[in-house]
């Protein structure tokens, strides 16, 4: 094995060790009282039908509560398409 690939493998193993060390603190799979599910998401689940008239919570959060975020997400996609076009088109003779 080349020394550079060995170095890459060691880096990957060290990173994996730190990630596995961090798993100790994470909640179990499917735990409904995990920190990710207790702070803001109950508000979205309970009030989104009242606030936005959209039964799909994902659409309500995506398009209404976080609409500004999605606007610029769309702009990022548009810019990616334009960048692709400017890189690959030939100049018109």
């Amino acid at each position: 094995m080349k020394p550079l690939k060995l170095l890459a493998l060691i880096t990957v193993l060290i990173t994996a060790f730190f990630l596995m060390y961090g798993v100790n603190e994470m909640p179990d799979w499917g735990n409904s009282s995990a920190p990710a599910s207790t702070h803001v998401s109950p508000y979205y689940i309970q009030h989104s039908q009242d606030d936005t008239d959209a039964p799909n919570f994902v659409s309500a959060v995506l398009a209404d509560y976080r609409g500004f975020d999605t606007l610029f997400e769309t702009t990022v996609i548009f810019c990616a398409g334009m960048a692709c076009m400017m890189l690959l088109r030939k100049k018109k003779k």
Binding site: A36, S37, V40, S41, Y44, I45, F57, V58, V61, L62, R66, D69, T70, E73, V76, I77, A80, G81, A83, C84, L87
Partner: peptide, 22 residues
């Protein structure tokens, strides 16, 4: 189930496709 990770990843998937294209 919690809708917030779905929202975040929904946009991340499409942005990832754009990044792959560029």
């Amino acid at each position: 189930i919690n809708p917030l990770p779905h929202v975040l990843m929904l946009t991340a998937i499409v942005v990832g496709v754009s990044v792959t294209g560029v």
